[in-house]
Amino acid sequence: MGVIDIKKIARTEQLFAPGHRACAGCGATIIIRQVLSVAGKDTVVGFATGCMEVVSTIFPYTAWEVPFLHVAFENVAAAISGVETAYRALKKKGKIKKKINFIAFGGDGGTYDIGLQALSGAMERGHDMLYICYDNGAYMNTGIQRSSATPFGAHTTTSPAGKKIPGKMQWRKDLTEIIASHGVPYVAQASPGYYQDLMQKVDKALSIEGPAFIDVLSPCPLGWYYPTKDTIKVAKLAVETKYWPLYEVENGVHRVTVKPRKFKPVEDWLKMQGRFRHLFKEENKWMIEHIQKEVDRRWEKLLKLEEAGL
């Protein structure tokens, strides 16, 4: 498709209806809207338990204008693999002719933690599907508990910043690289702030035969403690501070898709969010440096991989 013209897409039918019960300023619903506007009507969506499943399908209401399947927390990748296999069988018999996209969505809880086994299995079996993780970095739906996607130093209700610990003391798991190690044809990382990049990646992932995975940063005003109007600003700043590099791994080759001309210190991104407020106390200042070092290291590693054509 190349460059995506949103003026053209804005004329087409909306596939995610208003009236869903997501918080004001939710990042994940923006992601869903951007993804669906590329995927189009011939799409089957599966959703793991999480914020977006809860807010979009409160019985008897649904915000989805495409076939939607809600499964348990851990098995959305397995469920969509099954649907895709059934589709292939029907296609072989000539009962279905058209091409259908299969997209499984999960939050970071349902992807990094609980659904990792099902996801790994689906990737290895090579189903023609796309898995999208909207990563808001904690179990936001149940009240902001830490997950393995929560960044170092972040305050959550199960890693509370106080006298004992200054927030979460472990690094975030690098899931994008874990899935890339499966050797699947397409893996990418995206942010809704860079909609063009995100939508192009979805388009590419859907056109490629075989499994694809996209990890999308999903700002959450409730759990990250920032004003609702700043969702896109936070999503953009995460990229500009190297915290969330936008890159893709196509057939094992890394490519950084967005290289900001000027980088900002990671402090700017942390400052916007209340979950990192305690880092700015005198005794915790070392953590900001620590985060900056790690962010720089991961970025340099990525550039080296790209340069080496790996």
């Binding site: 804005a10 208003p18 896109i232």
Partner: peptide, 19 residues
């Protein structure tokens, strides 16, 4: 009519008619 509001609206609440 750049549609930035439309692409960034979390609630599908931007009214677009004829582009």
């Amino acid at each position: 009519h750049c549609m930035f509001c439309w692409i960034y609206c979390p609630d599908s609440s931007i009214k677009v008619e004829d582009g």
